[in-house]
Write a protein that binds this DNA or RNA. Structure first.
Length: 423
RNA sequence: GGAAGGGUGGCCGAGCCGGCCGAAGGCGGCAGUUUGCUAAACUGUAGUAGGGCAUAAACCCUACCGAGGGUUCGAAUCCCUCCCCUUCCGCCA
């Protein structure tokens, strides 16, 4: 959410910044409603001030006598007007609030301007895609042949885009989770969080999934609950409506959870394998920082997320999202992408964003620099560290052998009882 | 799911037969006084949000006692609905 005061004072700048994201927004309509609201507010507050004064007089006089009776009759009229105007003001305010919640975040000044993912900028590469002496198989074939992935039965149980991970595959998956969480807690100083897998409307408004993107989630019937599309939601909302001590910052959390996405609008894309599922596990990094630190914290976050790939020795590159590909909530975003032989290209395996105060304003997460001073909004950031299903796919494909077996990456062996090869 | 009791300022806690209650008192906070330093004591001070207001300070107004409605000239206080917490019972991993 943007600051309405910023929009009032710099409407043209706001419009221009939104346009860079390739989106339009009725800023003028919003300002018109805002002006109406303030007009009514002034009038109704005057009436309330008068009613307060007169009511006190009535109280002092005991409500007896002609004068008091007249005052009571008059205030009854005033009360009617107040009620009607309050209703108008409420309606306007609700509209304004709804509009504010639908305005995208403004891009960071430094983000390259572009229309789509075609204009994203590769900022770095690490490792080299392996040259296979044989034709590499996609992970869905490898996994099925080894009987560690079962897509048919996943479909039987729950439908398309669900899968079952089995035996050494499940163990390898669990090893990846432990490895990632251990790395982030032990080396990067994150606090481990196991959050609720469902969240209420307010939480989803806080991180920006609602009100605009309800269709992308699974809603629980008869409850104000959604299956979380990412641990970002519960973990960021840990501090909703809180004022943090400045000494607490920066706060680093590593949340682990399943993530549930309806994938509405992705029909026909990535239909094979683990790449695009309705449910996948993810290790998520979330930071709460002081505003002046968030730019540097984003760089650090990308480095922490990709440390997983370096230790797994998986080749990757980092793309910086252009203004047109930032999405609704991000001011700046880097996507680490892992090399996937079956796709013959780099595939997104993480997404690291700086939201600045966009989420903090929605979720009302603040901090106080000095006691007695006004609280300020924190900046929030998050990034996958990493998406576990995609990492599993990348490990299977990049570590496959000619005979269809999988070599276990060095760093994972301690988690698998020293196992060197699956198959 | 059933029964009972609760949700008041940073925290504890009074008020709850309607008006002088933004709200006693205590703790904590902040600024002073005293003191070689600390502690203690004493004095003073202090909520949040929105609007007036394009802007700093000041000032004024409005709202806020879990949330939303209602009654009333006037609601922390009365009525209704909902949410949350605690305890007991039932059920359950």
């Amino acid at each position: 959410m943007l600051d309405i005061k910023l929009i009032r004072s710099h409407p043209e700048e706001v419009k221009a910044a939104i346009a860079k994201k390739g989106e339009g927004f009725p800023v003028d309509e919003l300002l018109e409603l805002d002006a109406q609201w303030r007009g009514i507010l002034q009038q109704v507050e005057e009436l309330k001030a008068r009613r307060n004064v007169v009511s006190q007089e009535i109280g002092r006089s005991g409500g007896k006598g002609e004068q008091a009776q007249a005052a009571i009759a008059e205030m009854r009229q005033v009360g009617e007007r107040i009620k009607a105007m309050d209703e108008q003001a409420r309606e306007l305010e609700a509209k304004i609030q709804d509009l504010l919640l639908r305005i995208p975040n403004l891009p960071h000044e430094s983000v390259p301007v572009g229309a789509s993912d075609a204009d994203n900028v590769e900022v770095s590469r690490w490792g080299k895609p392996r040259e296979f002496a044989f034709t590499p198989k996609p992970h869905w074939d490898l996994g099925t042949n080894l009987d560690i992935l079962d897509f048919d039965r996943g479909a039987k149980i729950a439908g398309a885009r669900f899968s079952v991970v089995k035996g050494w595959g499940a163990k390898l998956h669990r090893a990846l989770v432990s490895f990632m969480i251990d790395l982030h807690t032990q080396k990067h100083g994150y606090v481990e969080i196991l959050p609720p897998y469902m969240a209420n409307t307010q939480s989803l408004v806080g991180t920006g999934q609602l009100p605009k993107f309800g269709e992308d989630m699974f809603k629980v019937e008869d409850h104000d609950l959604y299956l979380i599309p990412t641990a970002e939601v519960p973990v960021t909302n840990l501090h909703r409506d809180e004022i943090l001590d400045v000494e607490q910052l920066p706060l680093y959390y590593v949340g682990f959870s399943a993530s549930f996405r309806s994938e509405a609008g992705s029909a026909g894309r990535d239909t094979r394998g683990l790449i695009r599922q309705h449910q996948f596990d993810k290790v998520e990094l979330v930071k709460f920082v002081k505003p002046e630190d968030s730019d540097a914290e984003l760089e650090k976050l990308v480095n922490e997320a990709t440390e997983v790939l370096r230790q797994l020795e998986l080749p990757y590159r980092i793309s910086q999202m252009c203004t047109g590909d930032l999405g609704f909530t991000a001011a700046m975003k880097y996507d680490p992408e892992v090399w996937l032989p079956s796709y013959d290209r780099y595939v997104e395996i993480s997404s690291c964003s700086n939201f600045r105060d966009f989420q903090a304003r929605r979720a009302n997460i603040r901090f106080r620099r000095v006691k007695g001073q006004k609280a300020e909004f924190v900046h929030t950031l998050n990034g996958s560290g990493l998406a576990v299903g995609r990492t599993l796919a990348a490990v299977l494909e990049n570590y496959q052998n000619a005979d269809g077996t999988i070599t276990v990456p060095e760093v994972l062996r301690p988690y698998l009882g020293g196992l060197k090869v699956i198959g």
